[in-house]
Design a protein around this nucleic acid. Structure first.
Lengths: 188, 188
DNA sequence: CCCTTCGCTCAACGTACGTTGACTCAACGA
DNA sequence: TCGTTGAGTCAACGTACGTTGAGCGAAGGG
C-alpha cells in the first residue's frame, strides 16, 4: 500500500489519526498552552490550517485528543480495586496512555483539563467508595485516588530521580500496605 | 502615613512588594503561562513597563515570586517528620504559602517550575530518608513525598469536592496510618 | 469524459503578549 | 536653589499564535 492515492475515506482516517497522535504527544509533553497548532501540524506533516478543518479549534482538538473511552469493569471488592490501581503503575512504566498523560499534564493550568480530571477522579472515587465498608468511605476513596495521582505525577510527569527507573513491583510493594491501611481501617 | 510622598527607599520597597504579591496570587491561580505581565501590573496598580524595570523579565519575576526561604529544621525522627508533613496539610487549609502554590500550579507546564519542584522535593526526600531505617529508605521517602504532593494537588489545586471542606484533622487521621505503613516497614 | 466533491496548501489577518526607549515629574543632595 | 537621580508612565515595536478564506489538484460519480 503506497503512501499516495488511497481511497478518500481511508486517507482521511489516517490523517486524522496522525493529527491526534501528534497532538496527544505534544499535549502530554508540554501541556495545553505550550502546544501550538503549528507544532502539531509540523509533527503530523501537514499544514496548520488542516488541523482547523479537522477539529475546528484548539479546544476541540484537545477534547478529542484526551477523550478517554472508559473501560466498563465488573464489580470488584476493595482489595481487588487496590491491586488494579497498583497495576496501573505497572502500565505507567510502559507508559500510561498518552491521552491520560496529556490530561494530567494540563490539569493544573488549563481549566477544561481540570474539569476532565475532576470528573475522572470523581468517577473512580465513587466506584472505590462503593466497595469500602467505612462510613467515611468517600474520604478514604478520595485519599487513595489522590495518592495514586501524586505518585503518578512524581513518577511520570516530574520524573523524580528517586522513582524514575524503579521496577514497578517495588513501588507497588511499598505502596500496597499504605493503601490497605486506608481501605481497611482497623485491619480487615 | 499617607499614600503619596514617602521616602524613596520605602516607596520602592512597597511597590516591589505589591508586584510580588500580585504575581504570586496570579501564578498560584492560573499558572505561569496564563499569567500576563499586564495582569500583574493591573493588580499592582502600576504600568506594565514598571514590572520589567523591577524584575527584568517574566522569568525572573516568577523566580523571585516563588523563591522559598527554606526553614532550617532540627533533627527529627521519622514519626515526627510524618507529623510535620501532616501538619502542612493543616497549613493548607488556612492556605499554604502562595509561593508554594504558585510553584506547584506551574510545575507540570513550566520547565523552570518543574526544576524547582524537583529540587524542593528531592531536598525533603533526602531529609526524610536520613531518618528512615530501611535500606530502601530513598524509595520510601520519595513515595511519602509524592503522596503528600498528590493530596495537596487534589485538595488545594484541583479542589476536589470530596476533600474541599474537610477538617484537616480528618485528612491527617486517615492519612497517618498510610504514611506510617511506609516509614515503619514491618511495624515499629 | 466532465462536473462535483474534498483533502490539502498558501498567504494572510487580528490579537495578545513580552519587552523597549523616550519621556515626566517629584524626591534628593550639595 | 539648581542639577541629578530615580520612580513611574506612555506609546510603540516585534513576534508568535489561533484562525480564516481563497485557491489547487486529484479522487469519485454519472
Amino acid at each position: 500500500m503506497e503512501e499516495r492515492s488511497l481511497p478518500r475515506a481511508e486517507r482521511r482516517r489516517r490523517t486524522e489519526g496522525r493529527i491526534l497522535d501528534a497532538a496527544r504527544a505534544l499535549f502530554a509533553d508540554v501541556g495545553y498552552e505550550r502546544t501550538t497548532i503549528r507544532a502539531v501540524a509540523k509533527a503530523a506533516e501537514i499544514d496548520p490550517a488542516l488541523v482547523m478543518q479537522y477539529f475546528g479549534n484548539k479546544q476541540e482538538l484537545f477534547r478529542q485528543a484526551v477523550r478517554v473511552t472508559p473501560v466498563p469493569e465488573a464489580d470488584l471488592d476493595a482489595d481487588e480495586l487496590v491491586e488494579r490501581l497498583l497495576g496501573t503503575i505497572n502500565l505507567k512504566m510502559a507508559k500510561l496512555p498518552q491521552s491520560s498523560l496529556a490530561m494530567m499534564r494540563s490539569m493544573l493550568t488549563h481549566p477544561e483539563a481540570a474539569v476532565s480530571a475532576r470528573e475522572v477522579l470523581s468517577g473512580q472515587i465513587d466506584r472505590l467508595a462503593e466497595s469500602l465498608p467505612a462510613e467515611d468511605a468517600r474520604v478514604r476513596a478520595a485519599l487513595v485516588m489522590t495518592i495514586m495521582l501524586g505518585v503518578t505525577v512524581g513518577h511520570q510527569l516530574l520524573e523524580l530521580d528517586e522513582l524514575r527507573d524503579l521496577p514497578h513491583e517495588e513501588i507497588a510493594r511499598v505502596l500496597r500496605p499504605a493503601l490497605r491501611a486506608i481501605t481497611a481501617p482497623d485491619g480487615s
